[in-house]
Write a protein that binds this DNA or RNA. Structure first.
Length: 562
RNA sequence: CGGGGCGUAGCGUAGUCCGGUCAGCGCGCCUGCUUUGGGAGCAGGAGGUCGCAGGUUCGAAUCCUGCCGCCCCGACCA
C-alpha cells in the first residue's frame, strides 16, 4: 500500500481524551477514530489488525470443530423475554424504539433458538457453533478506548452436548484453542478460575492480561500459576494470637479516635489487637462484621456467606442500631447477628468500639464475650501474602478480561425448550457451554504490552503490514526507482508492504511515522545507502539497524520475518 | 447513576476568577521557492456561530439558568 494514496492519519500530538497507552497509540497511529463515547470506527490500517486477529481466532476455532455462523444483531425481544434477560440486562440492553427488537448484547438465546428442534437426538451432538460479530451494550460508562465500548467485536462460541462428560471434552478443547490463540497473538496472559457468577454453570475460567487499565482485580502467583479474582482469592495469613490469660473487659475513653490506626496510636497497641467493625444490612436486618485490624471486608465473600440482599449501613442507621457512629462500634452489647473473619477466631484481649461515641472496650475475649459469633473467610487478600498451599507469594493487580470460557449447563436450553431425546429415550435439555473473546481487547492488550516511547511494536502476526518501506527522498531518481522496484518485488514475494512514497515528507518525518506505526521491519532506501548498492533494515522491536546489499535483502528479510 | 474535570480552527491549547483591541499561540492545511538519513527553512495564505439554547448587560468566550457532549474516579458489568 502506498502511503501517498492511503488514509492513515497519524498524529504527532497526544489526543486530549486518550489516557491509556493502547488508546493513545490507536489514535496516533491512525488505526481508529472515535465516533461517540465507546463507539469507534476502525480505519483501514486498524481494520487490517482486526481482521488478522479474527483470522487467528477463526483458524483455531475451526481446528477444534467450530462452525462459523453469521447471526442477526437485531433480535426479537420476545426471545430475550423467554430467558428473562430483558430484565437481567436492564438498561445495558439496547432497545429499538419503533419495533419490538433489541440489539443483541451476546447470542446465547439466538444460538439456543436455532438448536431447538434441530438438535433433536443425542446423535446430533456434539456441536460447536461460533460467530465473530458486533455486540451492543449500553454501557453506563464506556472507558479506556476500545476496552469497554458500547459496540464491540466479540467472538463467541457455544457448544451443545448430550452429557456433562461431553461438555468437559468440549470445554477442554476450547481452553486449548484459547491458549493457542493468545500465544499466536503474542500476548502475555494468565488464566483465572472465576466465580461462576450470575450466569450459573459449574466451571468458568477467565483469560486475563495484567494492566492498570483493567477492570478486574486479581491475585496471581507467578511460581505456582495460582490466579483468582480477589473476590474469591484466599491466602494464608496469621490470625490473632490467643494469650494464656484473658483480661477483664474495660471501657476506655478514646476522644476523637475513629480509625484503627488512630486507636493503635492512642493506646500504643498493634493493629492485630483490634477488631474493626462494619455494619451491613442483610435483608433489612443489621449484621455486624468484624475484621482483624485494617483488613478490608470483601463484599463478594460477604454476599456469598449471607446470601440475599446485602448493603453497607448508612451513617444514620448505624447510630440507630448501635447507639454510636462509625468508629466506635463493636461487638460488646451489639444486639444483632455478629460474624467475624477467620483471623479473629477465638482471639482474646482485643480492642474494639464500645457502641458509645468516644469509647472503646479492651480485653475482649471472643470465646467469653462474643458468644454467638460466626466465623467466615471475609477478608481481601493482599500482595505479598502466601498462597493457600504455602507454595508461593501472591501479587494483587488489575487485569483486563480478554476471554471467558464457561460451562453454561441447561439454563438457556431449558428456558427456550431446546431438548433432545437421549439414548435412553428420555427428553433432556441440551447441555451448553459458552466461550467469548473480545477481539478489540486483544488488540488493545497487545498494544499495552508492546510499545515504547516512540510507538507501536507489532509482531508479524498482528501487524497491518510486514514491512514498512521508506523511500527517503522520492525526488531523487535513483531512490524513487529502487524503492518502487523493491515495493513490487517484496509484494511479489508475498510480503504485505506499506510503502512511504510521499514526495514532500522529510526523512525524519518518515522515520518517526514508521516508528509510531510500528511494522516489524523497516526497509530504508536513501541516497546514502544506494551509493553502495545497499539499503538499511531496522527491526522495530529491538531497534537494531544495519545496512544490507540490495542483492542480499531478500535473504535477510526471510531470516528476520521467516 | 453519584463525585470530579473539561468543551475556543483538523489536532494540542492561551484567554474565563476580574465582562470592553481576546479571538491568540504551536502543529497541521493551501501557494511559491529552497530543502530531504531522525518530525526542514523562508515568504505569502485559508480556516473559529468560542458545545447548544435562553437570560443579564450599552457590550458576553468571559456572568446566570437549562441542556448536550467528552474524560477520569466510583457504582454496575452477561
Amino acid at each position: 500500500m502506498k502511503l501517498s494514496k492511503s488514509f492513515v492519519p497519524t498524529l504527532k500530538e497526544v489526543p486530549a481524551d486518550a489516557v491509556i497507552p493502547s488508546h493513545v497509540l490507536m489514535i496516533r497511529a491512525g488505526l481508529v477514530r472515535m465516533l461517540s463515547a465507546g463507539i469507534y470506527s476502525f480505519l483501514p490500517a486498524g481494520y487490517k489488525v482486526v481482521k488478522k486477529i479474527s483470522d487467528i481466532i477463526r483458524k483455531e476455532m475451526d481446528a477444534v470443530g467450530g462452525q462459523e455462523f453469521h447471526l442477526p444483531a437485531l433480535n426479537p425481544k420476545e426471545i430475550w423475554e423467554q430467558t428473562n434477560r430483558v430484565e437481567a440486562f436492564g438498561d445495558t440492553l439496547f432497545h429499538i424504539q419503533n419495533r419490538d427488537y433489541v440489539l443483541a448484547p451476546t447470542h446465547e438465546e439466538i444460538m439456543a433458538y436455532h438448536a431447538k428442534g434441530e438438535l433433536k437426538s443425542y446423535k446430533d451432538m456434539p456441536q460447536m457453533w461460533y460467530q465473530i460479530q458486533t455486540k451492543f451494550r449500553n454501557e453506563a460508562r464506556p472507558r479506556s478506548g476500545v476496552i469497554r465500548g458500547r459496540q464491540f467485536l466479540m467472538k463467541d462460541a457455544y457448544t451443545f452436548d448430550k452429557s456433562w462428560e461431553d461438555l468437559d471434552v468440549a470445554y477442554a478443547g476450547l481452553e486449548k484453542a484459547y491458549r493457542n490463540i493468545f500465544d499466536k497473538c503474542g500476548i502475555k496472559y494468565f488464566v483465572v478460575g472465576a466465580a461462576s457468577g450470575a450466569m450459573g454453570g459449574s466451571k468458568s475460567e477467565e483469560f486475563m492480561v495484567q494492566s492498570d487499565a483493567g477492570e478486574d482485580t486479581v491475585a496471581y502467583c507467578e511460581e505456582t500459576g495460582y490466579a483468582a479474582n480477589v473476590e474469591v482469592a484466599q491466602s494464608i495469613v496469621e490470625g490473632a494470637k490467643r494469650c494464656d490469660e484473658s483480661k477483664e473487659l474495660e471501657e476506655i475513653h478514646t476522644p476523637d479516635v475513629k480509625s484503627i490506626d488512630e486507636l493503635c496510636e492512642f493506646l500504643k497497641i498493634d493493629e492485630t489487637q483490634c477488631a474493626k467493625s462494619r455494619v451491613y444490612i442483610h435483608d433489612e436486618n443489621p449484621v455486624l462484621v468484624l475484621m482483624l485490624g485494617n483488613d478490608e471486608v470483601n463484599e463478594m465473600k460477604l454476599d456469598s456467606v449471607l446470601g440475599g440482599q446485602v448493603r453497607p449501613g448508612h451513617a444514620e442507621e448505624l447510630k440507630e442500631i448501635t447507639g454510636a457512629d462509625a468508629g466506635s462500634i463493636g461487638p460488646i452489647g451489639f444486639k444483632h447477628r455478629i460474624i467475624a473473619d477467620l483471623r479473629l477466631k477465638d482471639a482474646n484481649n482485643m480492642f474494639s468500639g464500645a457502641n458509645k461515641n468516644s469509647y472503646h472496650i479492651g480485653g475482649i475475649d471472643f470465646q467469653r464475650d462474643v458468644e454467638k459469633v460466626e466465623y467466615f473467610d471475609l477478608r481481601t487478600v493482599q500482595t505479598g501474602e502466601r498462597t493457600i498451599n504455602d507454595d508461593g507469594t501472591l501479587e494483587v493487580f488489575k487485569a483486563i478480561e480478554l476471554g471467558h470460557i464457561f460451562k453454561l449447563g441447561t439454563k438457556y436450553s431449558e428456558a427456550l425448550g431446546a431438548t433432545f431425546i437421549d439414548e435412553d429415550g428420555k427428553e433432556k435439555p441440551i447441555i451448553m457451554g459458552s466461550y467469548g473473546i473480545g477481539v478489540e481487547r486483544v488488540m488493545a492488550c497487545y498494544l499495552e504490552q508492546n510499545h515504547d516511547e516512540r510507538g507501536i511494536q507489532w509482531n508479524k502476526e498482528l501487524a497491518p503490514f510486514h514491512i514498512h518501506l521508506l523511500g527517503l527522498n522520492m525526488k531523487k531518481e535513483n531512490v524513487k526507482e529502487t524503492s518502487e522496484k523493491l515495493y513490487n518485488e517484496l509484494k511479489q514475494t508475498g510480503y504485505e508492504v506499506l510503502f512511504d512514497d510521499r514526495l514532500d515528507a522529510s526523512a525524519g518525518f518518515k522515520f518517526n511515522d514508521a516508528d509510531l506505526m510500528g511494522m516489524p521491519v523497516q526497509v530504508v532506501v536513501g541516497e546514502k545507502g544506494l551509493k553502495e548498492d545497499s539499503v538499511e533494515i531496522k527491526v522495530r522491536k529491538t531497534g537494531e539497524r544495519f545496512s544490507v546489499k540490495l542483492n542480499e535483502l531478500s535473504d535477510k528479510l526471510k531470516e528476520i520475518l521467516g
